[in-house]
């Protein structure tokens, strides 16, 4: 295979493409891109061993800004594409990237079932509590009283989605929260997530400077979770339901075995065909 550069470790920069992001200046997603490339470098993976799968939205543009294999599909279905790829090609490292609308609204059903199915994927959700690409509508994680969108002038009036608690209840095997403003810390979480078997969910606070300028204050609110990750879903549940939404770190390590890989062939086409003979 590739013999020329096998010994040469790739730097974070090597995982970046030459394609200029569409993101606004100050967008949190720049920090996530940086963290992803740092994590891939730290994991020592070659470009061709990695595939990054996404749906639709600002954050779903991320695969094109890396130099790995990528798939930028339709809105909400990234986890399904990724599961198919990983089951067909178990040796690949498959990351899934997207936003809160893509993952929790239009793709909500797949989020739940991806956690249940526990295929060995790492799911990075860049949550900015707004639909940025369609210019600022409420998302599933937007506070009910937020009146910043013409589409919901009185606020949504409905409770925000609680991604980490849902992930835990649905069976995710690794749950962490990160912050785009700390790419080095986030990179470490991503490395842990990739190494942990099964569905690893990293919820990333990633501010939208254009439609949610007040999220610039997140930097001051974010802090280390200050707890040891637990393997007890009961303790994790309490922690996830009661923290202020800004505690960063690994919050839960599950020990469920990941979705079983297909078994080796045990018969032949001839034997299958013989079953039809009269």
């Amino acid at each position: 295979m590739d013999t020329t550069a096998a010994a040469e470790p790739l730097t974070a920069k090597d995982y970046k493409s030459d394609y200029k992001p569409v993101w606004c200046p100050g967008c949190g997603d720049f920090g996530v891109l940086s963290a992803v490339t740092k994590a891939l470098s730290a994991l020592g993976l070659r470009r061709e061993e990695v595939a990054i799968i996404s749906g639709i939205g600002c954050s779903s543009r991320l695969p094109a800004y890396t130099s790995a294999y990528g798939f930028h599909g339709v809105h909400g279905r990234a986890l399904a594409v990724a599961a198919g790829l990983k089951l067909a090609r178990p040796e690949l490292t498959v990351l899934v990237a997207g936003g809160d609308g893509d993952g929790f609204s239009i793709g909500g059903n797949h989020f739940m079932h991806a956690c249940r199915r526990n295929v060995d994927l790492t799911y990075l959700v860049m949550d900015n509590q707004v639909y940025g690409m369609t210019k600022g509508q409420a998302s599933p994680t937007t506070a009910p009283e937020w009146e910043g969108s013409k589409l919901t002038p009185h606020g949504t009036g409905i409770n925000p989605f609680v991604p980490l608690a849902v992930a835990l209840a649905a069976g995710a095997n690794f749950i962490a929260r990160g912050f785009s403003g700390d790419p080095n810390g986030l990179a470490k979480l991503i490395v842990d997530a990739v190494r942990h078997p099964g569905l690893s969910f990293v919820h990333i606070l990633s501010p939208c400077t254009t439609y949610r300028p007040e999220q610039k204050d997140w930097k001051a609110l974010v802090g280390d979770a200050g707890v040891e990750p637990t393997t007890d879903p009961g303790r994790a549940g309490k922690r996830l339901m009661s923290d202020d939404g800004f505690r960063v770190g690994v919050l839960y390590y599950g020990n469920r075995p990941p979705y079983a890989e297909p078994p080796a062939a045990r018969s032949s086409l001839e034997a299958i065909e013989q079953a039809f003979a009269v």
Partner: peptide, 24 residues
């Protein structure tokens, strides 16, 4: 029998996207 695999997906949206991923 021939070393392949069938996944029961959560819905048809997942089904078609899973096979797109596998074929990719």
């Amino acid at each position: 029998n021939v070393g392949g695999h069938l996944v029961q997906a959560e819905d048809e949206l997942a089904s078609v996207n899973m096979i797109i991923g596998a074929s990719f």
